[in-house]
Design a protein around this nucleic acid. Structure first.
Lengths: 244, 244
DNA sequence: CGAGAAATTGAGCCAACTCAAAGTCAGTGG
DNA sequence: CCACTGACTTTGAGTTGGCTCAATTTCTCG
């Protein structure tokens, strides 16, 4: 059941997983069929629509076909921290099926096409299908690894290093599912959202981007980001070996 | 097999889990027996000894009886980010059994008494015992929730708020296993390590602690921390409802 | 008591923040 | 087609939180 503030127009074709999906990749036809039947129809969500509401006791599992969505925490004083960003092909909410923990709201960036699996359906899959449970656990493990990488960024990086490393990471993830090439990708976040992701002021983010541009490390035209000099950019994003 | 830089003196009695242990609590006698047999003897580790080496392909699962230990990442330029702190009763490394991901080094604070489960033993337990596997998954989920809370702290908190929130969290965790009471606990970290945990300079941490002291929010005498005014301290540690 | 480690303090600097204002852009309606 | 509007981005000026480095004091332990 989609949320109230999405426009709910169902798209006709079913979930069509992108290459590189952690949930769908490498499954045999039988299991793919089960997954497809578990998902509802594709729906379209407006920019900033909520795909999961804060503290939803039965959060759906959402697979993105198009567009970005991020999980965030809203602080009492209005500040916000974005915990993770979902890109096309990513499945959000598998982690809520195993292990519990708080459920955070999920919002689209510029809008998205997505498909939901109801919480009850996903829960029984976890109970009955080992292969599905395994993938949910793997998702949880990746989430944790990502959170810890973000922790390192926030704790030890300068603004420039943090921004560079996020840009590199976004490019890599998009390239893996064929949505970026030639060191270019579309950034489906406003600078304000980007700032909430890296934990800085939108103003300071803007200046940081400007500096990276003036050094010819990246170019940004509208929402099109081009990584002009990946080696130097990686140099700027000082992180321990094995990280980007 | 313990690591080279611990002193390896085996203590005679076996693992003696503390109340509040996520791994041991609420198990029936049969399973407790299995767990006890899976663990090696208790050993004593010096201050700053490594319980797990960086990128160990077969990291042991370590249960602390006494003392603190933290998981950290060492950056190329010498900086360090502490990812999580293990307290007495905590089991470190369950997460490595499910889901993969990088293995980070684990070091004691002022020293510890601990007991290891060999990686091979733990792996077969995960494979063969559902209850054990469940607890490993739960551990992973807690780790992620903790990492995300830390993320919020680092991204959105001032130094004072971050330090206050860490002190409150440490107290709560210690109190749950009976190692703190009356708003007092022993802080088994140097200020340098504490600084690496909250992502700031030791100097700045020191000033921040001094400020908290001068406001009569906490008192620190040697390693003994006293939370003098918990309500105000919680006020200082501005985080969204449900967080500390 | 002496030596090394940890904690503390001081002075100066730079990164990141705040607030205000102006510029850009896409969409909307006259 | 143009003017208007609201959202987003960019720039400027000034402030401050957090950092660096050096020096001193306190603690711990042999």
């Amino acid at each position: 059941m989609p949320n109230a503030d999405t426009d709910n127009r169902a798209v006709l074709f079913p979930v069509r997983p992108l290459p590189g999906s952690w949930l769908f990749d490498g499954l045999d036809p039988d299991r793919l069929k089960i997954l497809h039947e578990a998902h509802g129809p594709q729906r379209r969500a407006e920019a900033r629509a909520h795909l999961v509401r804060a503290a939803d006791p039965n959060p759906p599992v959402v697979t993105l076909s198009t567009g970005w969505a991020f999980r965030y925490v809203q602080l009492v004083d209005g500040r916000r921290q974005i915990l993770s960003v979902g890109l096309p092909g990513d499945t959000i909410g598998l982690d809520t099926l195993v292990g519990g923990g708080p459920v955070y709201p999920v919002q689209t960036g510029r809008g998205a096409v997505y498909s939901e699996m109801a919480h009850t359906v996903a829960t029984s899959l976890v109970r009955d299908a080992d292969w599905f449970r395994d993938r949910a656990v793997k998702a949880l493990a990746r989430d944790r690894a990502d959170a810890e990488r973000a922790l390192i960024r926030m704790g030890q990086c300068t603004a420039e290093a943090g921004v560079a490393s996020v840009l590199l990471e976004l490019y890599d993830r998009l390239a893996r599912c064929g949505l970026a090439a030639g060191h270019q990708f579309k950034l489906e976040l406003t600078q304000e959202q980007f700032a909430d992701l890296v934990g800085m002021t939108p103003f300071h983010l803007n200046r940081t981007l400007t500096r990276l541009r003036s050094r010819d490390l990246v170019s940004i035209a509208g929402d099109l980001v081009t990584l002009l000099n990946v080696p130097d950019l990686e140099q700027v994003a000082v992180l321990p070996p094995g990280f980007k």
